[in-house]
């Protein structure tokens, strides 16, 4: 009864004009054409989207969650990148 494994795809949908494609889930399909059709049937039965991307899951390179400390440390230690780091006198008003 063993079945050969059918490739996995990640599905991204643009829900409205002007918005970015957002990851909504994954599915199995043998090729890109079938992946798009399956994505249409599985993820957009109620007008959820204007555009779909499907990407082979094995084409995605991801950061390692166990190294997130080291990975994102440069952002956390540089509070001077945020506008709230700087004092502007109240008299100056909104800036």
């Amino acid at each position: 009864m063993a079945t050969p494994n059918i490739p996995l795809w990640e599905v991204f949908i643009r829900s409205r004009n002007g918005l970015a494609h957002k990851h909504v889930g994954s599915l199995h399909a043998t090729d890109a054409t079938l992946a798009l059709q399956a994505a249409r049937d599985i993820y957009t039965r109620r007008g959820e989207g204007l555009s779909i991307w499907v990407v082979p899951s094995n084409a995605i390179t991801a950061s390692d969650p166990t190294e997130k400390g080291m990975m994102f440390e440069p952002a956390e230690s540089k509070i001077y990148r945020h506008p709230t780091f700087y004092d502007v006198p109240e008299e100056v008003g909104h800036m």
């Binding site: 050969p4 059918i6 399909a29 043998t30 090729d31």
Partner: peptide, 9 residues
């Protein structure tokens, strides 16, 4: 159907 789709791909 699964086999044919795999073979086609």
């Amino acid at each position: 159907v699964r086999e044919a789709a795999m073979a086609y791909a």
